[in-house]
Nucleic acid binder design. Sequence first.
DNA 1: AAGCACTTTTCTAAAATTTTAACAAAAGAT
DNA 2: ATCTTTTGTTAAAATTTTAGAAAAGTGCTT
Lengths: 416, 416
Amino acid sequence: MSSLLALEDTFLAGLNNVERRKYVQKIKIVKHLYVKGAKTNADICGRFQISAPTSTAMLNELIAEGLVEKQGRGKSIGGRKPELYGLKDKSLFVLSIHMEKYKARLAIFDNNNSPVTGMQTFPIEVTQDLQAVDQVHEQAMRLIEVSGIDPQKLIGVGINMPGLVASKEGNNHTYLRVPGGAESLQQLLEHKFGKPVYIQNDVKSATLAEYRFGLAHGRRDVLVLSMDWGVGLGMILDGKLRSGASGFAGEFGHIPLVEDGRLCHCGKRGCLETVASGSALVRNAQEGIRAGENTLLQALSEPEIEQLEVEQVIRAAHDGDQFAINILAEVGLNLGKGIAILIQLFNPELIILGGEIAQAKPFVLPAIQQAITIYCMKQLRENTRIVVSELGRDAMILGSVATVMENVFETPLDLT
Amino acid sequence: MSSLLALEDTFLAGLNNVERRKYVQKIKIVKHLYVKGAKTNADICGRFQISAPTSTAMLNELIAEGLVEKQGRGKSIGGRKPELYGLKDKSLFVLSIHMEKYKARLAIFDNNNSPVTGMQTFPIEVTQDLQAVDQVHEQAMRLIEVSGIDPQKLIGVGINMPGLVASKEGNNHTYLRVPGGAESLQQLLEHKFGKPVYIQNDVKSATLAEYRFGLAHGRRDVLVLSMDWGVGLGMILDGKLRSGASGFAGEFGHIPLVEDGRLCHCGKRGCLETVASGSALVRNAQEGIRAGENTLLQALSEPEIEQLEVEQVIRAAHDGDQFAINILAEVGLNLGKGIAILIQLFNPELIILGGEIAQAKPFVLPAIQQAITIYCMKQLRENTRIVVSELGRDAMILGSVATVMENVFETPLDLT
DNA sequence: AAGCACTTTTCTAAAATTTTAACAAAAGAT
DNA sequence: ATCTTTTGTTAAAATTTTAGAAAAGTGCTT
């Protein structure tokens, strides 16, 4: 077996204890190098509690397999300079797909998270049925072909999608429903692609990206909020992305926040999303415009009002529009009340705000902070920082790369 | 070194890789036997991916150290009957202490979680200062002496306490504050006892007990709610007790639930505790009695009303008192709204209700279920069962035993 | 600036440990 | 009663570690 990542169920079963342990150890080393970058032999010895000769032997095997290479020498700390071992560029590839309701983006990345193709964007419509899946698959196969990469080196496909995604089960419970009794959406995709496929909820995926490449890096308890049309939540708790029993954890947008509130599209009343989301912001703006509020947005025609976008309201605020600033602050206050609940329950060290709302930082952040001061206990509030994502839009597409890496390098043994 | 659990910082440092790995492996085996009960050699080989001779050798060492014994033979699955290896009764002891605001309970348990002393209860007052600590220590030392156990075999002390407990840091941020700059409360106690001491918040401790010995056993995502005077929350997520960045996660009682609500003792307004707790129940009862509601509780004199206990209201409900039933249902509805938030955020498979409220199950559970139906998304609601604790009051004292075992057997390496 | 003492890395071979293989004993299945 | 399966030992084989030595640095002293 020349490749480390055989990933076939039959492969592991055919190994004895020694071979399996070595395989697991090598995967752990590769994941370590992926997550932490190039490292010295000594570092690997220390981290995995193995001796230098064994560690060297395994690294040499990984070099022979073409996954690892020596990348110069590290800094001396008072002795001979150590050899640095790192993942070889372009030795593995991941196909990353991000599906939104009305468009999809895809790109291929290598094992050092560098894009090897440009980003492709095309329109789709994510509905209950599987039509969008076929479109995406077709485009993806074309991208793989055009990219010129060795298909053998493509180790997996990561797909973000909206809705209630049960990653482990491999199904989306909101959209893209597979016919009952048959294989899961994940299995269906794996057959189509002939590769391991991992599906994940969009916000959870972005959360993983923040953890690996963004402001959450190196932290152990972080919440990531994504506010666009709706509001989503992803959570890193004790250094891992947590998804709850069925994979649906983080349905923050639909917690009850307002007593006898407005009807939410989910069918319930007074959900957080009815007062703290892009759709709530736009609704408030539309109502204000129609009620004759003094605002720059009055310049819009009735059909333009109907088609109003979150971005336009934020732009108006940046242009000094007091009405837009007010409704953004109101959304911030409501969101802040929700965030206060999160802080009380999760005690995170950091909360990262992402999505469209990031553009409105100067208008919503003070309101959020104010709400937190009102609704949070001092000891909890003081230990939580709130920041705006630095990854921005990239979080999503990088997230599905991270999702693949996370799962591909997952060791088959988990003892608790 | 004859004992497995040396637990001195200097001990591990003095080991080389091989010795350390073996030590870790043996601890893992002991923890496995503790958590799962007696097991066969083959089971241990499979679980830890080691060969039969190595496994046998380690078990023999553990037998020699007096921790493990052969406990008869297991069932055959088509061949020779396997030898069962289990933890020897009374080979290790844990001192378990449960501190409430006005009383403390303590008892000594052995490594099979059997009490080896009766439960001792005595009055204390947990305040900002350390007075209660001295009282508890004194009583504890007396209990150890009276019990007649070999002090060498006492491996640790577990202490539950109310308040914001930062277990890792070793301090309580609400009560029992140590003078600034000095050692932590945990270190102070370790010096007093001359043993490893683990402090934990009472509800988190009970949660661990539910996980090890109660209805949460074998499940991976469980929330435990404890409702007495206040409301507390403990969470098992992905098979581990999670406490957030500073250890304060689970402050469920003080999430904002009511807009412009009543003033809470924490200083904020509209906290869940103001409408869904023992204190809210008693307050509602008192107000109703004084307003002349038609209830059995009218029989109480004014000083008795002032001293009203949760238990009395629940008893009245059991006696068919409609007023008591109504206010319990109201509390249930509010609690249910809070639980709906928890389900949306955590997606637990199980929620265990504990504390005094367990006694009022027939009156609050329907109301809770009703609130969940209103405020939860179908997909989340359907995957969550809500039950009442079967451990009851024992959860607390067993919890601090589990806390000690959890930490004592924790391997020093944790690679993520 | 050169030299010396001390570290750290890297490599190799002997020593120690762990595993596999082989086999006897024990139990169930036919 | 015989055959198959599983367990529990023991001895040979394989693997991993330790120890020792050389190589390659750093940093202090003169």
